[in-house]
């Protein structure tokens, strides 16, 4: 695993070579509250940076998740079907959403590192 990079929409990417693990930040899960259902894309789906890749349903609302990178979905977290609350409990670990084979690793350069994301959260 490498360092995490964050989008302004509160998604994170952990890039290992051209394989990106995507999820939502701890701030995002705390804002959503209890997560009860997650709709994930199918393996093989092409995703584009900034496009919707998943929908997270909390008790109170549905929220869209946008992909911070472009590429192809190669794996979805199999545990979330039965245990969507893993995203609340461990958003950066067992609560990851999907893995994407990225088409342009350079896209990650525009994302925030930990320090920049922490600063960004203070402006919200």
């Amino acid at each position: 695993m490498t360092d995490l990079r964050y989008s302004k929409d509160h998604e994170y990417v952990a890039l290992d070579g051209d394989l990106a693990t995507l999820g939502i930040s701890d701030y995002a899960q705390s804002q959503l509250g209890d997560i009860v259902f997650i709709e994930l894309p199918e393996v093989g789906k092409k995703v584009a940076k900034g496009k919707e890749i998943a929908v997270i349903e909390s008790v109170k609302a549905a929220s869209e998740v946008y992909s911070p990178v472009s590429g192809e979905v190669v794996e979805v977290n199999p545990e979330l079907g039965e245990a969507p609350a893993l995203v609340n409990d461990d958003p950066l670990g067992r609560g990851w959403l999907i893995k994407v084979r990225v088409s342009d690793p350079g896209e990650c350069a525009s994302l925030m590192d930990d320090a920049a994301y922490s600063s960004f959260l203070k402006t919200i």
Binding site: H10, Q31, L32, K60, A61, A62, S63, V65, Y66
Partner: peptide, 8 residues
């Protein structure tokens, strides 16, 4: 991500 139906 964005929340669709939270009052503003």
């Amino acid at each position: 991500m964005t929340e669709s139906d939270v009052a503003t």
